[in-house]
């Protein structure tokens, strides 16, 4: 039995997959703590789709894929800002317009160059077959993002909570915003490897949303989200060995399952509390 449970760890590729997934899951969860508070969740999704053509181009030109992804992300964010500035369209319309355009461009590039890149790996992720160089890229991105967030999370919190006040106490608000979106793009690129472009949104939303139901303190929200983001990603990658399943799908399903349980049993904001309170009230009245 123990032998069977330890079996995945005897394979180098499984150990790598589990560790990298945990690292990326933790960083994405850290970002999710902020993202869910601003109504910017869709931004993560948009970025993940928008960087696909960049990744494809990078593969075609034999550049590190992170470079292509980064410039595509920057271009997408820039186009969104430009369209929003020049027209009176709503933000969600602009996001929908731009990210589908970029995604379509990516698909087009792949269909023209079918041999250059495995599009399925970009869309669905393929952590089990991650190359050595990709692994180094993902690790560097994740460690830098995590360090910046761990050191400066209070500054980011102040900016997200009340931007005018943050500015009035002398915080560099614009620089912090740019730093946040740069990290979001970078983490999205890293998460492409683990869960793929389609499911990145779950990684940067679900852990934060789960922790949000459990606490009123931002510090604890971050800690819970990070632990759960890392753990769920590691467990998902590990379990994929036995189920012979796509790790990305497993990770996100696992995160969602825990979110659903939390909705019901969360001590303060859960639905169960409402049921008990109503029953108790009925008991007293009846």
């Amino acid at each position: 039995m123990i032998d069977l449970l330890l079996q995945p760890f005897s394979y180098d590729y499984m150990v790598k997959a589990i560790l990298i997934s945990a690292l990326v899951g933790g960083v994405c969860a850290f970002l999710s703590a902020f993202l869910i508070l601003k109504g910017w969740s869709l931004m993560g999704d948009a970025l993940a789709h928008a960087i696909v053509p960049g990744v494809v181009l990078a593969y075609i030109l034999a550049l590190p894929y992170a470079v292509g992804a980064f410039f595509a992300g920057l271009l997408a964010a820039g186009s969104m800002a430009a369209v929003k500035h020049k027209t009176a369209l709503r933000e969600d319309t602009v996001i929908g317009l731009i990210f589908t355009t970029f995604f379509a461009l990516g698909l087009l590039l792949v269909s023209i160059n079918p041999t250059a890149v495995n599009i399925q790996a970009v869309i669905l992720g393929n952590i089990l077959a991650i190359s050595q160089s990709d692994m180094v890229q993902v690790t560097i991105i994740s460690v830098i993002c995590f360090a910046v967030l761990a050191l400066k999370w209070r500054d980011f919190m102040a900016v997200f909570f009340d931007e005018s006040h943050a500015r009035s106490i002398g915080l560099p608000v614009t620089a912090l915003r740019i730093a946040f979106f740069t990290m979001l793009s970078a983490a999205t690129v890293a998460a492409l490897q683990t869960v793929g472009a389609c499911l990145v949104i779950a990684m940067v939303v679900t852990p934060g949303a789960t922790a949000y139901l459990l606490t009123d303190r931002f510090e604890r929200l971050i800690i819970m989200a990070c632990i759960w983001g890392a753990a769920s990603s590691a467990i998902g990658a590990y379990a994929s060995y036995y189920l012979d399943a796509n790790p990305g799908g497993l990770i996100v399903c696992l995160q969602t399952a825990v979110f659903l349980i939390t909705i019901i049993v969360a001590p303060k904001y859960g639905m169960a509390r409402g049921w008990f309170v109503r029953r108790a009230v009925r008991g007293i009245n009846g």
């Binding site: 508070l37 909570f161 009340d162 949000y212 606490t215 009123d216 303190r217």
Partner: peptide, 10 residues
């Protein structure tokens, strides 16, 4: 009104 009062801070 400029602030989100659901923000998880005490």
């Amino acid at each position: 009104e400029e602030v989100d009062w659901n923000f998880p801070v005490l």
